[in-house]
Design a protein around this nucleic acid. Sequence first.
RNA 1: GAAAAUCUAUUCCA
Length: 383
Amino acid sequence: VAIYSMLIHGLCKAQKIDDACKFFEQMKEKGCRPNVVTYTALIGGLGKARRLADAVLYYEEMQDQGCTPNVVTYSTLIDGMGRAGEVEKACKLFGEMKSRGCCPNVYTYTSLIRVLFKAGRVDLAWEAFNEMKCRNQVPNVFTYNVVIDGLLKVKRFQDALHVCQEMCRTDSRPDQVTYNTLISGLGKAGHLYEAQELFHQMKEKGPSPNAITYAAMIDMLGKAEHVNEAVNFFVEMKIKGFMPDVVCYSSLIDMFGKVGQLLEAKRCFEEMRKQGCKRNVVVYNCILDALGKAGYVDEVALTFKEMQQEGFVPDVFSFNVVIDAYCNAGDLKEAQKLFEEMKEKGCYPDLITYSTLIKGLAEVGRMAEAARLFEEMEATYHA
RNA sequence: GAAAAUCUAUUCCA
């Protein structure tokens, strides 16, 4: 059983979740009874793959088999529920485990807090954070980082600061992630100066900046349109030996697009290939937007085709960007074609898709069609 | 032999 569990865990880690499931079924056929570790490994793998329904099935199956979930199982499943956006279910499970006499540990609380913050239930998250301390579950670096990130994202800077101070008094001293969290949180709130201060602090007394720190700085400066500074950080990070990843390139391309430096955006996009940095849908969306905003619809069309040829499946963002480009070029026909295409492909238009197309129709005076689309939108999103 | 991977990127309008 231990060997099977190990293998299943390995398959899950390697994102080969279907193989893990198959393997799991095989082991049962061969008469080897999975234990709580096996089930938990599989539930964890399914949760990370956002396959909550299957995870829950196995959770039920294990109980039918007389295998009792333990604190690891509960924590794992709460995390999976969070990834699937099922806050209520996560809370319910948390209550259930307690009533069954299973004591939540640091992992459980950290997962729960993260789930609650992500769902915008800040007060409940805060409550859980206090509850864990009352129950003598000592928050660790992960817990603190999750709490600080959650507070910053809802702009509760004072509270975040207090948590930082509390953290400094414990054994869980702030690490790179803590600093990165603070830098990006402050950056998003427009506190560039404070973020830069923190960056210098990192350089002077550690923990030293890593690739993500640089990426966060570059993104922040890019959004503030401080192009030269962003580029300086980009150069510096490469000198320090950090390979910019696809996220970092996306920030740069987006920045160049927004400030109208299309050539630079394209250069970055090409540089990625030379550096062997793999592209993804997001970075394609960035370059599509840059091209579109500069008015190069033909290149948008070419690049849109290229991304699909390379095996990327356009998402709502991609369609919205491309539809916007066509609308701004006055080519409503093509925009509407894409609108239909996305529906056919199972990529459902969202509110942004509708407003983009409505705006496009209105701008060329096709008010009746715009109104009709508006009704369609209301019908879809008000039901 | 099982659990948090915690932090960085993209679309309309404002």
